[in-house]
């Protein structure tokens, strides 16, 4: 079973939950930008483990199915059609042999995910099927997709006609502003009181330089005490670095493992999807919560995703 790439879109890569566990060797994790959309997409097609999906950025591609297949589309709305017919997102959909799945530019949001029942069959590298563009490893030949590529799919747990069709409420990325919750630190003591206040109240605009590595923001300068150079230390998904220019940069999926700028705060995991789905020109406001609150938010998010999988599991057994 396979999917042919008729046109790849702007930046379409094979991704999964990330190449985790190798940060100590300097491997950046890669993986999907919007983990929530990714996990829902996999759940909708009965992929219980972290199967590899396609991630499309800003402008989607066109893909032809060579055999009957179940798939689901989540994330940004790119006006998906199946052989010319509009299709719903956040729903299990059946494609027949020869059907063409097509996307255009994202209307709202930035990253769209396609999960196929069974997942994409590429060789894992260091335990992950994610594409690491910088190193040229993982995913489909270590690169973004090109016209003419043929993606092989893994065998799903059940034949497509026996898999249940499920629909969940779609995520909305509408609007051009988002409030993003953060936990201050680990280097918030590098900034003045006024600087912290600026960071937590000023609007920050997403710049065109934003990519899978980092969300570079423009806006009021954050005042720091003596400087923002630190002895390089660990960076996580959501770390907010402040370089000497004084405007923040949120480190994302393709971040390097370590960095030498002070990190004023860290985005709470539950708010990462809404941050990564912002488009250049959109506005972001930061709002501080305690680490306890952030952990609570994390648990709430995980439980909701687990419930979705369980609900689907019941259908699958029936």
């Amino acid at each position: 079973m396979s999917v042919c790439v008729l046109s790849p879109g702007a930046l379409t890569t094979v991704q999964d939950g990330g190449r985790n566990g190798y940060g100590y060797l300097g491997f950046n994790a890669s993986g999907v930008m919007d983990e929530r959309a990714y996990r829902i997409a996999n759940a909708l097609v009965g992929n219980f483990t972290d199967e590899a999906v396609l991630e499309m950025a800003m402008l989607g591609g066109r893909f032809e199915f060579t055999a009957p297949c179940l798939f689901a589309v989540t994330g940004a709305d790119m006006g998906a059609t199946l052989s010319g017919e509009e299709i719903r997102m956040y729903q299990t959909i059946f494609a027949d042999e020869g059907d063409v799945l097509a996307f255009s530019a994202a209307k709202t949001g930035f990253y769209t995910y396609i999960a196929f029942a069974g997942g994409i069959d590429v060789e894992p590298v260091l335990g992950s099927r994610s594409t690491n563009l910088k190193c040229g490893i993982g995913g489909f030949q270590g690169r973004k997709l090109q016209k003419g590529d043929v993606l092989t799919l893994r065998e799903p747990a059940l034949p497509p006609e026996r898999l249940p069709r499920v629909r969940v409420p779609a995520e909305s990325y509408a609007g051009d502003a988002a409030e993003v919750r953060v936990v201050l630190g680990p280097q918030n003591d590098y900034f003045t009181k006024a600087g912290l206040q600026t960071f937590l109240s000023a609007p920050y605009r997403v710049t065109a330089n934003t990519d899978r590595m980092g969300c570079k923001l423009d806006g009021a300068k954050i005042e720091y005490k003596d400087g923002v150079d630190i002895i390089s230390d660990g960076i996580v998904f959501g770390s907010i670095q402040v370089p000497p220019a004084g405007t923040p940069m949120v480190m994302l999926a393709d971040r390097q493992t370590t960095g030498g700028y002070a990190k004023i705060a860290t985005v709470v995991s539950a708010d990462l999807p809404k941050l990564v789905q912002r488009r250049p020109g959109d506005t972001v406001y930061f709002h501080a919560v305690s680490a306890h609150q952030a952990e609570k938010l994390y648990k709430k998010e995980q439980r909701a995703l687990d419930r979705l999988l369980l609900r689907y599991g019941k259908d699958l057994v029936r």
Binding site: V182, G185, P186, I231, G234, T266, A291, Y298
Partner: peptide, 17 residues
Amino acid sequence: ILRSGDCALVAEFGKEI
């Protein structure tokens, strides 16, 4: 021990190399 969001702690032993 410092916080780096909801999924990471930083154990910092000093400020020098």
